[in-house]
Design a protein around this nucleic acid. Structure first.
Length: 486
RNA sequence: GGCGCGGUAGCCAAGUGGUAAGGCCGGGGACUGCAAAUCCUCUAUCGGCGGUUCGAUUCCGCCCCGCGCCUCCA
């Protein structure tokens, strides 16, 4: 099956081309580990996870690289504030990131390179750019990329190069001239930042100065690590590169400039960007109280699978409004899917464990689930896929006549659920039990049961009302009853 | 200012030149003494005004409203 995706560079929905005999090479810009990632970060990573899974199911044999940026202004500053070494600090947050990824059922990338572990590749790249005339040492001793040396600069973000060169204010309206003496042009960006006093111990011998031949102490600039690491693991030209929409410019634009100037080859054939989310209708911010980490949501009692489903209810190129009530809705939806599959499991003679143990993909007709799959293949349309998935579960239950039918439908369902990364039947361990029923409540419930047994419904109803008032609910069974908190 | 996106039922959200998927919530019904659960079922002419067309929610133009990037924020 061919997957089609919108490409930022051409601004078209294009078929992804798998090169025979080669894996499909994907690079996604991972987190900068200076604190807990928030749901905005994770909706992006979840979307790329769905892409990765979909590529797997479709037979693209994806090779997925997602980096960890563990050196920049923020990581250095915060580690110093906490009195930790950069390494210890970033390790802590990397671990936290991994925990959250696992909670959200994100598959691990094939490689997860860290910036500080690939300094040599970055230094080599800078030296090559200096050598080719694309980079220079600025007034402050840092190495800058000469934007005018790259004719295609601006092609990804579709910005006018001339305007970029001459733009003297940024979008906040502030002057863009702070370091005009350090750089030749305002659009030039740092490849290697010369050591500063407040960098502390976070300095490495860098590229050689073109005149003195001495290594410039400092640290890599932003953008550089992604060029160096993507080419290290995927080669000078690979298939797909992605990240959040904010990375389109300047980050990805600069990656292209660095990489293509150095290699002369097309850096990447397809660019995918994930639109930012709104939370409760507003841009997420701490002051508005709508800023959430995964941990925040888990502490509020939301199930990770419900969070994931809520993420997928929106299309990756469409502005999406994430809400807490949306997670509740997703939770109900998840339960509906599980209940909807029950008749198929029974007909197929399959247990829940056997079902969740199925390892897709299955190369066969997807039957009722074909539409859902088609939606995923068409620009990763997860909302449409989910819509079709719900319909398909219902339809498959009705249509399945034999155990074989049911089994085939379940394999198809498992394939779709794998692609979406939705773990069903996983939340069972969260059963209540722990809640103790107070003795007075238990006594009221027992009296109601006795009243009911003796057909004294008036008393039974009165007792039920009393229990409800106290926040408890009686659920009758054929041979008894349960008492739960309302 | 430059580039771009969106406005579809109470909420979330697909989609199509020929009168609109799905999910949540809510209503009605069936079934249970009641309740819960379950099952069935119901709820939109697609921001406004023009144009093209046999026919537009879907194409074009204008307008209104909301939003994103151009800030080392995914």
């Amino acid at each position: 099956m061919v997957i089609k995706l919108h490409d930022t560079l051409s601004r078209e929905v294009k078929a992804l081309e798998k090169r025979a005999g080669e894996p499909y090479k994907v690079y996604v810009c991972g987190p900068t580990v200076y604190g807990p990632a928030h749901i905005g970060n994770f909706i992006t990573f979840t979307r790329f996870d769905v892409l990765y899974r979909t590529l797997k199911v479709a037979g693209y044999e994806p090779y997925y690289v997602r980096n960890i940026t563990d050196v920049d202004d923020k990581t250095i500053k915060r580690s110093q504030e906490e009195g930790l070494s950069l390494q210890a600090f970033t390790e802590k947050w990397t671990q936290k990131f991994h925990d959250d990824c696992a909670a959200l059922n994100l598959l691990e990338p094939d490689v997860e390179p860290r910036a500080t572990e690939h300094l040599q590749e970055q230094i080599d790249l800078v030296e090559k750019l200096i050598e080719k005339g694309n980079a220079y040492v600025g007034g402050d001793g840092s190495v800058y990329y000469r934007v005018t040396s790259f004719a295609d600069y601006g092609k990804l973000a579709h910005f006018d190069p001339e305007q970029l060169r001459t733009q003297d204010t940024n979008s906040a309206g502030t002057a863009n001239l702070a370091d005009e003496y350090e750089r030749e042009a305002v659009a030039d960006f740092a490849l290697w930042k010369a050591q500063k006093a407040d960098d502390g111990a976070n300095s490495w011998p860098g590229p050689r100065h073109p005149e003195t031949g001495e290594r410039i102490a400092g640290r890599p600039g932003w953008h550089l690590e992604c060029s160096a690491m993507s080419m290290r693991y995927l080669g000078p030209s690979f298939d797909l590169h992605g990240g959040g929409e904010d990375l389109c410019f300047p980050h990805h634009e600069n990656e292209i400039a660095q990489s293509e100037a150095a290699t002369g080859e097309t850096f990447c054939r397809h660019w995918m960007h994930s639109t930012h989310l709104l939370v409760e209708g507003k841009k997420m911010s701490k002051s508005l109280g709508n800023f959430f980490t995964i941990e925040d949501l888990l502490e509020k009692g939301y199930a990770p699978a419900a969070i994931r489903l809520a993420f997928l209810q929106g299309h990756y190129r469409q502005q999406f409004n994430f809400t807490l009530s949306g997670i509740d809705a997703a939770k109900s939806g998840l339960e509906k899917l599980e209940k909807g599959l029950q008749p198929l499991l029974e007909k197929a003679g399959m247990s829940r464990e056997q079902f969740t143990g199925l390892v897709p993909p299955f190369a066969e007709n997807l039957g009722a689930f074909q539409n859902a799959w088609n939606a995923l293949c068409h620009d990763l349309n997860t909302p449409a896929a989910l819509g079709s998935l719900f319909s398909a579960v219902k339809r498959a239950s009705k249509q399945a006549e034999t155990a074989e039918d049911a089994q085939a439908a379940l394999r198809a369902a498992a394939t779709l659920l794998f692609a979406l990364g939705l773990p069903l039947f996983a939340a069972q361990e969260a059963e209540p039990e722990a809640v103790e029923v107070p003795s007075d409540i238990a006594e009221l419930a027992e009296r109601r049961w006795q009243a009911k047994q003796s057909k004294d419904f008036a008393t039974a109803d009165a007792l039920r009302a009393e229990l409800t008032e106290k926040g408890w609910q009686v659920l009758d069974r054929k041979d008894g009853y349960d008492v739960v908190q309302a």
